[in-house]
Amino acid sequence: MERQDVIRAVAARAGDALIVANLGSNAYDLHTHGHRPGNLYMRGAMGLTGSVGLGLAMARPDRRVIVLDGDGSLLMNLGQLATAAAEAPANLVHIVLVNGLWQETGGQRIATAGRADLAAIARGAGIAEVAEAADLDALSRVLDRALAAPGPWLVAVRIQERGASQAPNTDPMANRDEFMRAAEGFVAVAPQYERA
């Protein structure tokens, strides 16, 4: 299973969910294969993609929030799993694509290429629903559950890299404004309006 297969499978099931995509390949491929207003493309802040998803899930409990994370990024901020487990938003679906590499910088091996097991770490952190998938049939079954049943979810998906992704140069502010309209979030910047 390759990254593009995972991105397409998620995009096909996303409905009105809000998606936060990690910097690099996940953001690039989501833009290429499933661009829509409800996608936020991270351009930096490695390690914080899941934290953005957590804040979004707390602000919008009425919407599914999907995080498309990378294993190198999740390893940079493992504490977020403990925070997400403690806050326990039922609408959060944190998907981590595990390639065992720092893909953007030339494919250097990282701890998940060896003994580190992100699903086990998530269970240890107390995440309510943890699942794994290594082929497309398993992924389809897991996604159908994770997008319907209460979470929070951590879904670890093992992928093989095929090659470099196209890299659209998305503009943070244009993306933010489109995303905030999709998320109905502009009340945060306008003091005269407050969500009831």
């Binding site: 936060v20 998803g53 403990a82």
Partner: peptide
């Protein structure tokens, strides 16, 4: 919400802000 590390809070507050929560 107690954090595990301060930088985590920048992410959480960004997500909340995008969703309309200050």
């Amino acid at each position: 919400v107690p954090l595990t590390r301060e930088e985590e809070g920048i992410g959480v507050l960004a997500g909340a802000f995008f969703g309309g929560m200050r």
